[in-house]
Each structure stands twice: as C-alpha cells, then as structure tokens.
Design a protein around this nucleic acid. Structure first.
Lengths: 233, 233
DNA sequence: ATTTAAAATGAGTTCGACTCATTATACGGA
DNA sequence: TCCGTATAATGAGTCGAACTCATTTTAAAT
C-alpha cells in the first residue's frame, strides 16, 4: 500500500498551502488587498513568488482562499458557541454575540470579503454555509414550536445579519468596542420579547406620553404577532 | 467686472469635470473598478489620459468622485421623495421604499461604494449626509411626540439601513425585483402599526405609575398569548 | 498682435501581477 | 546505493496599466 508516502507528501503539500494562506491573511489584513504585494506574501511564507501561483491561479484566487477559510472557521466557531439544548432565543443570542464579536475582532479580514466577490458575483460558498447556522436555529425553533410555523426565516435573516453588519461598521467608525445591548435590542425587535428592550427609568414618573408610547409599542407587537401567525406571505 | 469670462471659464471647467465623472461612472459600473482602465474612461470622456489626472489625483480619487456624487444625488432624491407633512411612519416608509429601490436599480454603483472606502477608512462624507435623512425623520418624530423621547435612533438606523442593504443583496442574488413587503415588514418590526395617530388627550384619574403597571401587565399577557399560540402548533 | 498664464496632451516611466525555461527535490526500481 | 523520471520550486523576464512630465495648444489680458 503506497498510502504512507503519498500521505506524508500530501500532508506536506497541505502544510505549505496553509502556510501560504497564513502569510496571505496576515499581509492582506495589514495592507489591504491592493496594498499587499504577492512578492511580500511569498517572502512571508518563505517561498518563491512563482510558487504561490502553483497553489492559486492569481491574486484574487488567493484572496478567495483566505476569505473562504476564514468563514469556514467562523462557521465552526459559531456552532461551538451555541448551546445545543438552549431555547431558540438563547441560541440566537449566542449566535448574535459571537457574530458581532467576530466582526469587530477580525474587522480587516471581514472587510476583505467584499473584495472576494468581485462584480456582483455569487456569494462565497463558505459565507452561505455560515448563514445557514442561523437558518438551522430558526428552523429548529419552528419545529419545536417556539416560533410560528410560517416564520419568515429569510426575511429575519436579512434583519439579523444586516443589522449586525451595519452595527459593527458603526461601532468601528466610532471606535467603540463590543456592546452587548446591540444584540439584545436586535433580538427584542426580532422576536418581540417584551422584557429585553425595556429601559430602566428609575425614580422618574412616566409621562402620559411615555404611556402612550408603551401603548403603541404594544400595538406594534400585536400587529407583528398577528402578521407572523396569520398572513405573512 | 471680470466675472463673466471667469464664470464661463469656470462653467467650462465644471462641465468637463462632470463629463469625466459621467464617463467614469459608466465605465466603472460596466467593468467594475479593477476592470475599468483610465485610458478607456478618458476616451469615453473625449479627453487625453493625462487630463483625467488634472482633475483627480488618481484612480481611487476618481472613484470617490463618482461615488460621492451618486450619494449626493441620492440624498436629494430621498428628500424629494418624502412628504414633508406626513407622519413619521409614512416618511419612513417613503424613505425605505426609495432606498431599497435605489439600491436595486443602481446596484453596480452602490457596490462601488465599498471600493471607495479603501482600508477601514472613514465613511464617505456624502454617505453620512445621506444617512442623516433618516435621523432627521426620527428626530422630528420624537419632537412631535410620535416616538418615545428615548428612542434609540442610532440603533434603529443600523436596523433600517442594515436590513435594507442586506435585503437588496439577497434580492439581487436571487434575481428578484423590488418587493414592497420588505419595507412594510421592516417598518412593522421597527415602529409598528401604520396608524400611528392614536388618540392623545384623555382624562387622567389614575396615576401614571398605575397606568404603567397596567400596561406592563398587558405586556405579560401578550407574552402568555404568545406561548399559548406556540403550544397550539 | 503679443505676451503670459492655464489647460491639455500622449509618449515614456514605473511597478507589480503573472509566466515559463531552468533547476532542485522526492521517490521507485535495479 | 545509484539512476531515471516525475513532480515541485525557483526567480529572471514579460506584460500591461497607472501615473508623470516635457512639450504643445488654447485662452485671457494688454
């Protein structure tokens, strides 16, 4: 059986491929896609420039490798971060937390994602795979009866990831760090849970206006609930 | 008064600058940032390649010009699309409609926005200007008492633009066209019922705190109702 | 009509992505 | 252990597009 030599050889090849990816990720994150020179990446990986092109068709393809691996790892991390026995809300909160934190901690690599889908091309497979973690949580919630059967998972997915992505950008712009209330508020909006978003006005007597607003908020919840149950297309 | 010649000269210069921007927008939208050659843009604008560099420091700067002008025009369009006398919810719906439609109709140019903020740099001024349209609507809503005084405008802004941006991407990916329900559902999640003009003046026998307690109890009932419905399925 | 300043030109330079002829390495058989 | 062959690696050289700048053209002022 010639498996052993082939195996070691293959392992060696994969080690090299991985070390190129490591170097590329470092340089890309540091200098951005345009600022990174392939020759720099090659030097950082201790290979010749031409060698890079044995593993990746071109610079774009190399970027796709880096970004793809990143999202694959993110998917694994997300799945690990989720308590399998938790309620849907708990799981969503865990995913939201993990997602926002990852976006912030690895902002440079995440930003590279945009460069990896050149011109309105399809999303990266790995990104779609990642997004399915959300879908699975929601589907489980529906199956377990924690969510309405006709929950518009697709639309909520856009709200979930869209909001978190935009929030991450905003936080980064304002140079603020992770803020758990972003996730909490988002979930309270999405799922309609009442206790999460409630402010804590202590000592102040609520005005009639405050009451009116609370009333409207309840109307909102009712309408949302109604829609969710009855007639959401 | 030497204004006239100077004025015509200036007008001529601006016309040329604008025609370069027109050409650049066309070529960029068609071929993407990397695919677009400055020489092509110059030819399309009927100037020499060097002339482009008299008006814009480099290709990046030219892109910033294109994208900046786009968002400025979008701001004007948004303001025109909003009925000044409408309720907050109506105005939000108008903005949401306009925003989503613009994202979809001019997807290519919008995508270029990402390329115009090279490396975690600050957002474009024009984009921030655009976003303020939302802030103004919300602030007016608070001032008119249609929204709670402590409305987290910043967070809702992230929800609003984040969701619409993500939805636009999703729609484009699935090759679907504008879908008004996206906006409607988003608003029902964000603000709630469309008939926001509920009654205002009432007699006030019980203390506000009493009312508040009653309202919160209603919220709890809602939650129970929610569970009830869940158990049904 | 002449001078002078401003605007425009495009051939030439630069630099980095990518190629490919050459060299080094790994592996199987004698 | 040595040789032959296939596979992997190399880096000098090619190619092309962004950008420059010496020169020319155009416009304004006198």
């Amino acid at each position: 059986m010639p498996a052993t030599p082939r195996h070691t050889s293959r392992a060696r090849v994969e080690a090299k491929e991985s070390s190129i990816l490591d170097a590329a990720e470092r340089i890309f994150a540091q200098a951005g896609f345009d600022g990174a020179k392939v020759s720099d990446i090659a030097r950082a990986a201790s290979v010749a420039e031409g060698t890079v092109y044995l593993y990746y068709k071109n610079k774009q393809d190399l970027l796709a490798g880096v970004v793809g691996r990143f999202w694959t790892q993110l998917t694994l991390g997300a799945e690990a971060a989720i308590e399998p026995k938790g309620t849907t809300t708990e799981q969503l909160e865990q995913l939201g937390r993990y997602h926002l934190q990852s976006l912030l901690n690895q902002f440079e690599v995440v930003s590279l994602t945009y460069r990896a889908r050149p011109q309105q091309e399809q999303d990266l497979d790995q990104v779609r795979e990642y997004v399915r973690v959300f879908d699975r949580i929601m589907q489980r919630g529906v199956d377990r009866g924690e969510l309405p059967k006709d929950t518009p998972i697709g639309q909520l997915r856009d709200v979930f990831f869209g909001t978190l992505e935009f929030s991450a950008r905003t936080l980064k712009l304002r140079e603020r760090s992770y803020d758990h209330s972003v996730v909490t508020n988002l979930l309270s909006i999405m799922v309609g849970s009442t206790d999460a978003a409630a402010g804590k006005p202590k000592g102040k007597e609520p005005s009639n206006q405050d009451l009116m607003n609370t009333l409207k908020s309840i109307q909102k919840q009712l309408k949302t609930l109604w829609r969710l149950i009855i007639d959401w297309s």
